[in-house]
């Protein structure tokens, strides 16, 4: 494996480890509902500080279930990942195309200057 690839994989691995460790170590066990969203927790703190506070506006559209919500989050991630993959794929393809064009050009120039030799080599 190339050194660059190895470093990139290590970076990814570190991110995965950071996400898995809190779960593996059971850091949510002391809570009634482990690993809820920080925004929901903030709502709890707000109602602790101001028990009378009522949200004065509700979302125009609310995903009808947790499943639909996670589907929409997946769509968001997939859209982003798709665009990123397109970008890097396009760049790689362009680079390869340029390299090939350059190689071909060098080859024809080579053939032009030493036509006799390359014919011998080619046969």
């Amino acid at each position: 494996m190339r050194k660059n690839t190895r470093i990139n994989l290590l970076l990814l691995l570190a991110v995965v480890a950071l996400a898995v460790l809190p779960l593996a170590l059971g850091l949510g066990d002391h809570r009634e509902e482990p690993f809820t969203g920080a925004d929901a927790e903030a709502e709890t703190v707000i109602t602790e500080i101001e028990p009378d506070y009522e949200p004065w506006f509700s979302p125009l559209y609310e995903p009808p279930s947790g499943e639909i919500e996670s589907a929409l989050f997946a769509v968001q991630a997939a859209l982003g990942a798709g665009v990123l993959a397109y970008y890097f794929g396009l760049r790689r393809g362009r680079r390869q195309g340029e390299q090939r064009a350059r190689a071909r050009q060098a080859a024809t120039e080579d053939a032009g200057s030493t036509a006799g030799e390359s014919e011998v080599q080619g046969s």
């Binding site: 950071l18 996400a19 460790l21 809190p22 779960l23 850091l27 949510g28 066990d29 002391h30 809570r31 482990p34 690993f35 809820t36 969203g37 920080a38 927790e41 989050f73 997946a74 968001q76 991630a77 982003g80 990942a81 990123l84």
Partner: peptide
């Protein structure tokens, strides 16, 4: 992508 990634943290949330 990153704001769709809800990740667990050391605080248990």
């Amino acid at each position: 992508v990153l704001s769709a990634l809800k990740l667990p943290s050391v605080t248990g949330s």
